[in-house]
Amino acid sequence: MRGLYEQTDSRTRRRRFIAAVVAVAVAAVIAWFAWASISTDLREQGAESMRQVILDAAVQCAAIEGSYPATLSYLESHYGVTVNHDDYIITYEAFASNVMPTVTVVPR
Rank of each mutant, 00 (worst) to 15 (best):
A36H: 03
A96S: 10
T8K: 04
A36G: 02
V24F: 11
S39R: 06
S37F: 07
T91V: 15
L75P: 00
A28M: 11
Q60E: 11
V22S: 13
I30L: 07
G80R: 02
R51I: 02
D41G: 15
L55T: 01
V24G: 13
D9K: 10
S67L: 04
L75D: 00
E48S: 07
S39L: 02
G3Y: 13
A27L: 15
E65A: 14
T104Q: 12
W35C: 15
V59I: 10
A28G: 11
T8S: 08
F17D: 11
I30M: 08
T104S: 12
A27W: 11
R14F: 15
R51G: 03
A57M: 03
S67Y: 03
H85N: 12
T40K: 08
I64P: 02
I89A: 14
T12L: 09
V99Q: 09
E6Y: 02
V22M: 15
Q45G: 12
S39G: 06
L75Q: 01
T71I: 00
P101H: 05
T40I: 03
E93N: 15
Y5K: 12
T12Q: 10
V106F: 08
I54N: 00
N98H: 14
I54S: 00
M1Y: 11
G3C: 09
Q52E: 12
A47Q: 01
A25S: 14
E93C: 07
F17I: 14
A28N: 03
V103Y: 00
Q7Y: 02
A36P: 04
M1P: 05
F17Q: 12
Y88T: 10
